[in-house]
Write a protein that binds this DNA or RNA. Sequence first.
RNA 1: GGGCGGUUAGCUCAGCUGGUUAGAGCACCUGCUUUACACGCAGGGGGUCAGAGGUUCGAAUCCUCUACUGCCCA
Length: 879
Amino acid sequence: MPKAYDPKKVEDKWYQFWLKKNYFRAEVDHNKKPFTIIMPPTNITGELHVGHGLTMTLEDIMIRWHRMKGEPTLWLPGFDHAGIATQVVVERVLASEGTDRHKLGRKKFEERVWQWARDYLKTIREQKQKLGCSADWSRERFTMDEGPSKSVRTAFVNLYDKGLIYKGERIINWCPRCLTAISDLEVDHKDLTGNLWYVRYPYEDGSGYITVATTRPETILGDTAVAVNPDDERYKDVIGKKVILPAVKRVIPIIADEAVSLEFGTGAVKVTPAHDPVDFEIAQRHHLPLIQILNDNASMNGNAGPYKGLDRFACRKAIVADLERDSLLVKIEPYSHAVGHCQRCGTIVEPLASKQWFVTMKPLAQPAIEAVRDGRIIIVPERFNKIYFQWMENIRDWCISRQLWWGHRIPVWYCKDCGKLTVAVEPTTKCQHCQSKNIEQDPDVLDTWFSSALWTHSTLGWPDDTTDMRYFYPSTVMETGYDILFFWVARMIMMGLEDTGNIPFQTVYLHGLVRDEKGEKMSKTRGNVRDPIDIAAEFGTDAMRCAFLTGLAPGADSKLTDVKLENGRNFANKLWNATRFVVKGIPDGKIDLTIKYGSLPTEDRWILSRLNRTIAKVNKMMDDFQLGEALKDIYEFLWSEYCDWYIEMAKTRLRPEYKGTSPLPVLIHVLETSLRLLHPFMPFVTEELWQNLKYRLPAGWRTTDSIMVADYPVADEKAFDDSAEQVMTSIIEIVRAIRNARSENKVAPNRWVTAEIYGGGLAPAIIPYTEAMQTLARAKPLTFHETRLKGTVTENAVVSVLTETDVVIPIASMVDMAAEKERLQKEIGQLEADITRLETRLKDESFLGKAPAAVVNKEKERLAERKDRLARLKQQAGF
RNA sequence: GGGCGGUUAGCUCAGCUGGUUAGAGCACCUGCUUUACACGCAGGGGGUCAGAGGUUCGAAUCCUCUACUGCCCA
């Protein structure tokens, strides 16, 4: 084995091995409960980013863990056609080629996008594999595949038949760049500083003006009324009067409506029903006409009179100039307000009245609220419940039609003869009502999230009654980012319940955003994006997976830093070298790996005890989705206990002259078990090392061909050994005390010191470790006393009073007695403070009365221990 | 405007349902070619857990308020 771990040499090799062995494939076993994760479908808009890296890591860990626990485990991977997003990127490519989709035509354009899709499907799949994903590629799905597409049409038709999908004219958000309607969720509100223009509308009878305030003067062209609040004393007498609309000289009424705020502007507002949601509702109540003033691209249309053809913002300028000229502009105030932007392209969206398809959400939301409220679905972390409920309880109808070419075509055909609609799952050529062939399919496609909402069941075969659907639905965990809780998770719950009558998943695990070193969001415009594939190449995939988990709490944003990556890499290398050491100790030929439990030395019982406690803790943490904490425990066990102490102590036992129990069986057992414990987190290095061990050990040592299908460790409580832990703690304390004394007294590293150890009752247990302690502390000879130190040691000695033992190091070389006194004084002060605190607590009647007996006893023991130590310290140090 | 987080060592963060002497990594300081590992080893310094009040025998942990900060919704 080389000196350092080189991930490049092993990762591909093992991934191909796993693939060839078909380990990723989920098999139905009706005797067992499956564990299922449906992978969030990856957008085909581009390559993977670090957010995907986190998702893949978290899900792969859960999947590998459950697979090793012996559960039939399905991780179903897939892709999302990402309607608008993909169309935007492909259009950009077309633009760079000097063409556009209209020149190409719909059919050619769709072919072009399919080509793009096929390319990215392949690239992204390979990237996921690079990251170690143990997904079932045989079940991979794409939202545009025939199966999921049929699910989409079926779900649409079902909702339509139930009256939950309707087509109607409503105010929607229009993106003038993407030329499509978008849902409320796809609009980002940003506060912009604009102006509030106060404009005079002259009364028709010439009796003066009413002044209205607006942030969008160009919409004056679409006004069909002026409204005031019915309770507004200022305007009581003008209700019912008529005013002349500036710029276009149309005569419109002044009406009263509750929706008008008394505080905004002058209290009188202009009503533009075709371009404002509140105004639209006012218009409905007062039967006002709608006047559209915008073309699709947000230039002014024929209703704009003289402003026709101007862009909306040019028009705004022109109108303001004209108002000023006509002395109709009272004043301009700076005004900051939220302006909607298209999430995809950043263009300011226009609210406008348009005929679109909508889903009635309230009846779908109710059962989805109940599913979370009654605990059938658990959201981790819990605080997202509140956010979920709040959104669901105020849910509004969902605009699902998009004026795009890329996506699922709406399964509705219009009859040009009888005018009726045919809504059908299977494409049709004739009208259901009059059999006419003169029909035309709705040109629009569905919101990409409509198909995403069905993902948990469309991927398993719904609406067909498939084996997978019966066995794997509902899935166990839905792991995704909190940023798409509304977009996706909420809608999956609603549609899952609606389509199947059952929840789509039992637990929702939400992760946060991965940010850069400075805590900034990664984005192309900031230029701080990191490609997970590059990172994996530089540090190793396992190191990257570690980095994602360090300091990760569910639902919290995290930073990906080089320091974390280096740590992960170092840990992999540490493991590599620990294994190298163990492997070096394995003799050629016969080796007996039986652990003789009856006669194990203390450090063996200690490391086995620590191992099993770690296993117990890790399994508990995994159950609670505390993946980061679980990894941390394994890391600390392996590094600080196994490597730092157990291996170091084993070294003396591996010397040829050593005649006692060989440490090899335990050394190997603990390492091998730890590798299995760690495998879900660091699949590549653990497989490589496990195979290395397997190769050198007798045939039949392990029955599986790969660590990834070996058993996940289960804690053996019989291995918990308090007394071994107590003895080892003392041994570690003694070694540390001597090292510490050496260091503080600047003893040359190669110089041997001597020490006397007063072990009391523990002495017999410690004495067998003389040689190990000598080596570890570079102290020889060590003299043991089966008593506690009595009397005073005054001269030329460093005294360390430990929990169970005392160490006295008499050395002429430790000259700095003043420093030593100071250290002792500090320690005494610390102990005295502890004692005071403990005594106060133990005198407190309410503490004694109310605290559990175990806590009181613990405090008593602690006090006794401190007092004992203080007494010894004072006595021995001669204070 | 409504809601949800965060504030713990110089930096980045753990610390889950209240009960250790509050931890880790990095950084810093002092040493080290100790035959697995300098991607390493040994030792060390560093925190009144944002502030105030409250509940409790006991609070980093629960409650209230304040300050700063981030996000979501409207």
